[in-house]
Design a protein around this nucleic acid. Structure first.
Lengths: 230, 230
DNA sequence: AGCCTTGTTAACTATTCAGTTAACTGTCAT
DNA sequence: ATGACAGTTAACTGAATAGTTAACAAGGCT
């Protein structure tokens, strides 16, 4: 026994991956250290060897998740296009990113449930900037210069608006379905919602540059295709 | 021992109240039956006597929470006023209701985390309709008749929009603060955000009734006071 | 060759937790 | 009055859980 695996880094990595799954699936309190060990096919003490405690492992999982999200958002480069199209693509990208990474939503929810107590423990996470906000700034500036967006738009507000609308739809699917008696899981519902989010964000960005009516017309031309509305 | 309390209903009620606290604070997995019993100052078996199991207690707590939320929303009667003002008041009310009832947010989050598994167990909850959607319908209709809102607005979409924007701000405060490096807890931030949500929703409701420009002007007059934006 | 360091296992421990049991106590209908 | 029933308690049980220990195995350094 105690045979040496070829590659310790890989073992650590495997534990981390399985931990992310477990923590995302069940939350911190629901997660079972034994289960993570079993699934990683290493002895439980390995988790303690590499991560020191259940909390240590959770923080490591969170950090990794944030890094993955950042990398995913870095890959986005809608920057080339016209601002209205770019903003619409950014909304779509944001929604798709969240949709395709449910673990990220669940881990963030867990973190909020714990009132940010784990975030406080990780300088690493606190230092991880969010490239999405920069991308938004870029698009807003471009739009302002071209005269399609109003001036003095705050990228943080735009970020919060679009991410709230995308995130909540996915994160609170079950209670929303109860409140509305609608199915939100279907591809059709999702598509309609994403279009709605795009409309809303663009409406906000283009509204009231009182001298120009041109931009608004542009948005609405696109809106026409989508607005049967969920 | 085994002294008889004056009022069994009150005992049951006390257990339920403390259970709501505990489940909201720590989630289902983090909640401790012993702790609820201790705080309710009854023996643990009382919880099992009245609610059968930890799950039974959780479902009862959820049901109660939904009833409270519904009652709270019933009390709202912005119906009298002009539609634009009414919508703005409705947004404010929604935000305040969520803000003043953090347990509700936490229990709903828990329910979503569990993929609606407890909702499925409670016909009671599934039958609890949400009066807010009706109120929105009412305001939208009024607005349509008066020509300030566009026709064919879907109340469910308006509901999802405003509740996402209010809920997410409160529910995901910690991760949002990390992403943006801003304080969202201050009264000032909250006020600005609520105004922003009002603006966005009204923008959506009033946009593109192409013949009339009057309503838009009305919205914007109000917006002027608020839009330093978060 | 020998030994220190890193990686690894299996078995153990102490505690915590959901749920159970058995006994007891007032109250109310007969 | 009496006995069934609803309400209540304290103590118990068995399983699960986070974390620990001791021993050991393979490379690399001297």
């Amino acid at each position: 026994m105690a045979r040496r695996s070829s590659d310790p880094a890989r073992v650590r990595e495997k534990i981390l991956k399985l931990a992310m799954e477990e923590f995302a699936r069940t939350g911190f309190d629901g997660a079972r250290v034994d289960r993570i060990a079993e699934r990683s096919k290493v002895s439980k003490n390995m988790l303690y060897y590499y991560f020191k405690s259940k909390e240590g492992l959770f923080v490591a999982a969170l950090e990794r998740m944030y890094e993955e999200v950042r990398d995913q958002q870095r890959e986005l480069s809608v920057r080339a296009h016209d601002p209205i199209l770019a903003m619409r693509q950014l909304v779509e990208h944001t929604f798709q990113a969240l949709e395709s990474n449910p673990n990220a939503i669940r881990l963030m929810n867990e973190e909020n449930k714990q009132r940010g107590r784990f975030l406080r423990k990780s300088k690493r996470i606190r230092d991880l900037y969010n490239p999405l906000v920069e991308t938004i700034s870029f698009i807003l500036e471009r739009g302002r210069v071209e005269g399609v967006f109003r001036p003095a738009l705050d990228s943080a507000v735009v970020y919060m608006t679009l991410s709230s609308l995308c995130y909540h739809y996915l994160s609170n699917r079950y209670t929303l379905e109860i409140a509305l008696g609608k199915d939100l899981a279907s591809a059709a519902s999702r598509k309609t919602w994403v279009e709605h989010v795009g409309n809303i964000v663009l409406l906000y960005c283009t509204a009231e540059v009182p001298s120009t009516t041109a931009p608004k017309t542009a948005v609405m031309r696109q809106r026409a295709t989508s607005d049967a509305d969920a």
